[in-house]
């Protein structure tokens, strides 16, 4: 795909579609880091077989040092495998054809501190070969999307870590990628930013994009991933859909309006008669994330200002496939 448009598979007749290649395919991949004398030092990835289908959100999970980031760097051509083969979007990792269709957010944003937010996005747009008008339009839309339209003219070195992370996310999206690789995307983000990253991932999935997410914050991944792979010591320990992996067939949870003591007693008695044990019954507490988001929204509705990120906007029109809307935004 060129940097601006993705072929819309939904418009192609089923029979005419080529057999779908996986977005990522790793077979028997091993990565050994060697010392100066070429002696094996660390085996970061061992015999990894991985197949990520197009259009899915795939979570690569594991504790620190489990080989998640190494795997991602292998997919991007930043590292070369010691053994095994890797195909990304049907091509060689790191080849220009593949990279033009990939977006990448590294673990730390790694931005040019002397450029401002808008210059940063325009620069990365140029590296994708976008024409000046298009890259300017996309830069503005992305700044709006990540909630940094006012901070766009400030040098990145003045940004907080969360703001840098937002610009990092924006640069990963500037080419409207087919495959988006996010390494610890919520690292350093406040709950607002975290929520937004999740929303972006879900919106991209809606558009048929493939997203690979690594994280050790499992709650973040659980909400957005179709499938997850759990790594430990460079090898895959578990692979499956989130539902498959997390469903507990031995238990049932009911979420009801508050019961008065009499009704609660009747329910307990009924369940007791049938030999069903109640492990937990309590009034639920509000989620801390919801509480935080409520407070921030209230503050904003009262007109309080901040030099940091403001409320994120909707998905950038060019990412949502609404090019004509985007044209007027530039």
């Amino acid at each position: 795909m060129g940097p601006t448009t993705a072929p819309d598979q939904s418009r192609v007749p089923e029979a005419a579609r080529p057999p779908a290649l996986p977005a990522v395919e790793c077979v028997g991949v091993r990565k050994v880091f060697r010392d100066f004398w070429l002696r094996p030092r660390v085996t970061a990835v061992q015999d990894l077989d991985l197949r990520i289908e197009r259009g899915e959100v795939f979570g690569l999970l594991g504790p620190n040092g489990s080989g998640k980031s190494t795997t991602i760097k292998l997919l991007l051509g930043l590292l070369f495998p010691t053994a095994g083969t890797i195909r990304v979007l049907g091509g060689e990792p790191g080849s220009r054809g593949v990279l033009s269709r990939v977006g990448y957010l590294p673990e730390d944003s790694h931005l040019y501190p002397f450029l401002d937010g808008r210059e940063t996005l325009e620069y990365y747009g140029r590296l994708f070969g976008l024409d000046p008008v298009e890259r300017r339009r996309r830069a503005l839309q992305l700044l709006e999307m990540v909630g940094l339209p006012e901070a766009g003219r400030r040098p990145v070195q003045e940004y907080s870590k969360g703001m840098q992370r937002r610009i990092g996310l924006a640069q990963a999206l500037v080419n409207d990628p087919e495959l988006l690789i996010l390494d610890e995307p919520t690292n350093g983000l406040d709950p607002l930013g975290t929520r937004q990253v999740k929303d972006v991932i879900l919106a991209l999935r809606e558009r048929g994009k493939t997203v690979v997410v690594t994280s050790h914050l499992l709650a973040d991944v659980e909400e957005v991933c179709d499938r997850v792979s759990i790594l430990y010591g460079g090898t895959e320990r578990l692979l499956g859909t989130v539902d498959e992996l997390l469903s507990d067939g031995a238990r049932t949870r009911l979420d009801l309006d508050r019961l008065d003591p009499e009704t609660e007693g009747a329910v307990r008695a009924l369940l007791g008669e049938r030999g069903i044990a109640i492990h937990r019954a309590e009034a639920p507490r509000q989620n801390l994330e919801s509480l935080f988001l409520d407070i921030v929204r209230t503050a904003r509705s009262e007109g309080l200002t901040t030099s940091g990120a403001r409320e994120a906007g909707a998905l950038a029109p060019f990412l949502a496939g609404r090019e004509e809307d985007g044209a007027s935004a530039g």
Binding site: P3, K73, G97
Partner: peptide, 14 residues
């Protein structure tokens, strides 16, 4: 050193 290059070389620049 700062790994800033990671973000650049994964663009289709060569």
């Amino acid at each position: 050193e700062s790994r800033r290059l990671h973000t650049v070389v994964v663009k289709p620049i060569g």
